[in-house]
Amino acid sequence: MALFPGCLVLQRMPQYEKAAKRVLRELYISAASIAHAACCGAPLESFTDKWLYLAAYNLSLAERMGFPVLTICGNCTNTLLRAEVALRDPSLRLVVNERLDEIGLHFEGGTRVIHLVQVLSEQLEGMRDKVRVELSLKVALTHPCQAFRPHEVLGFDDPLQPQAMRSIVELTGAEVVPYDAEYDCCGSTLYLVNEQLGLEAGQRKLSSAAGADVLVDACGNCQLLLERFQGLMNEGRAESKMPVLTLPQLVGLAMGIDPAELGVGPVMAGKLLGSSP
């Protein structure tokens, strides 16, 4: 597969990309970087239809490699797939290809764009065989909104109460604990417009999930707000900090992979694996 990390993961979360690649390797799935990949186009859409040039550009790079696109961020998944659908219109495709032609690329269409949650949910048997450490943890899940909605484009799982992450995490031996705000948005995108509102949304989720040992996400935006910005919530009270991991980090720990190879620090790893055999 062709891994598309997206700007946020590329710039700030090499740990997430690293864990995703490592876990996929364990499942014999290759995840090659896409040479010259750019922004998916999402930040342009609110201003201009030129976002489609950028999305088509990225899709055409993957097309040239002959691989489906593997995404690990909800926003990129959603944007690339909506572009793929929009560009089924032959007249739009023509306009886009005139531009791509100038740099020696061509968009044909039909490339699959698949979020990591979906990829892993299609590998449940393989994952079961790879679990080496039964995790004695209570896990709260936060689902990447944009990897499930709109359902008519994403076409995967229950769009309002997705279950794929649950079936993946349950393989690790961990107990998935439901909580009121489980299916609510983390608020990360809101933070861009109104920091206070974004943090409030995140805080609501974290408070609601307080009974869990760890919160698990599968999107750069969720990880940014719920983990990196957690110190800005709750008046920065460190003792109430909720550990937040990305899905492949948790799965990787259950596979017995060295935490360092998953971008999980020794303190966090000790805390999470401490009670496991």
Binding site: S46, N75, N78, C145, Q146, R149, P150, H151, P159, L160, D184, C185, C186, G187, S188, T189, L190, V193, N194, L197, G198, A201
Partner: peptide, 15 residues
Amino acid sequence: YSSWLCSSCWRCQEV
């Protein structure tokens, strides 16, 4: 209202 106040969760459109 503000059209920019959105968390991009797509829930409104889904329901």
